[in-house]
């Protein structure tokens, strides 16, 4: 049951850790662009993790009640809502990150920084709420069992791989030259926003709230979603081995909203660098 612990904990932690790394890289970029001045603080990170874990626990405790709602598809509806909101907040972040175009009036107004912080907190809390509740569900069933040690050590290995990937992604993104770093961050933000939208569609399809659409492709034989690389690809760019056309559409629309934001123009179009 060791591998079980690895797979479940890894896929949940990895997604939350990569999300957090991406946001922190953005934050690092913003502060660096403001010539070392702290445009945004990082204290909110700890608070949002604590709040996220708390919410995840509350959600997990009420799992059976939620699950019975809407004729037993309550979980899908709740999770679809969480995914949609995450996608929405990620798009908001893309539009709020101060870009070349509003660098001028930006410095004096704190509103943008505050809104940006609120959006980042929301994204982190939602990510931990989503992923944490599953770990709580899994962990709750494990505690009393004989194989608790093997599952626990598996969980630790999964958590270790997830957290370390997040740490390395953060240092890789922040270690890049400013322009390249902004491009990578913006692209990842677009992919993550697309992924969240696509997941929301998938969950609503599963609950039969939106219509079925045929499978776009099947690449399970090429790259299995269960493999470590598959999990990494899922967490990083939202890889799915057999998505439906609607999911693919939602993915592109979500990503597009990020790619037409001012920060994206700063990253790809403007020749002169912002700082």
């Amino acid at each position: 049951m060791f591998i079980n612990g690895v797979v479940i904990v890894l896929q949940e932690i990895l997604e939350a850790a990569l999300m957090l790394s991406l946001l922190l890289s953005f934050l690092h970029y913003i502060n660096r662009a403001y010539a070392g001045q702290t445009y945004m603080r990082r204290t909110w990170v700890t608070y949002s993790i604590v709040i996220g874990v708390l919410f995840a626990w509350i959600y997990s405790v009420n799992f059976s009640r939620v699950s019975e709602a809407f004729d037993y598809v309550g979980l899908e509806i709740t999770n679809a809502t969480i995914h949609s909101l995450s996608s929405l907040f990620l798009i908001c972040i893309a539009w709020l990150v101060p870009s070349r175009e509003h660098a001028g009036f930006q410095l004096n107004s704190g509103h943008r920084a505050q809104l940006l912080t609120v959006c980042m907190i929301a994204v982190v809390v939602l990510a931990i709420l989503r992923e944490g509740s599953e770990i709580f569900q899994f962990g709750g069933g494990v505690l009393g069992r004989d194989e608790a040690t093997s599952i626990l050590s598996g969980g630790l290995i999964g958590a270790g791989i997830g957290v370390c990937t997040g740490v390395l992604l953060y240092y890789a993104l922040t270690g890049l030259p400013a322009r390249l770093s902004l491009r990578a961050c913006t692209l990842l933000l677009a992919l993550t926003a697309g992924n969240m939208a696509s997941q929301a569609v998938l969950l609503l399809t599963q609950a039969d709230w939106i219509s079925y659409s045929s499978t776009a492709w099947s690449s399970e034989s090429l790259l299995s979603e269960a493999s470590v690389v598959g999990q990494l690809a899922y967490a990083l760019i939202g890889y799915e081995s057999s998505p439906s056309w609607l999911q693919v559409g939602a993915y592109f629309i979500g990503g597009l909203f990020v790619l037409v934001s001012p920060i994206s123009r700063t990253a790809w179009v403007n020749k002169a660098h912002w700082d």
Binding site: F63, Y72, E76, G140, G141, T205, E220, E240, S242
Partner: peptide, 27 residues
Amino acid sequence: TPEEFESFELNREKIIVGNGQAVVFIG
């Protein structure tokens, strides 16, 4: 104990709480 119904081929994933029931649409 809770269980998670999962299938990569069906592209479905759903937690069913212990002593509970759930509905999944496929096809």
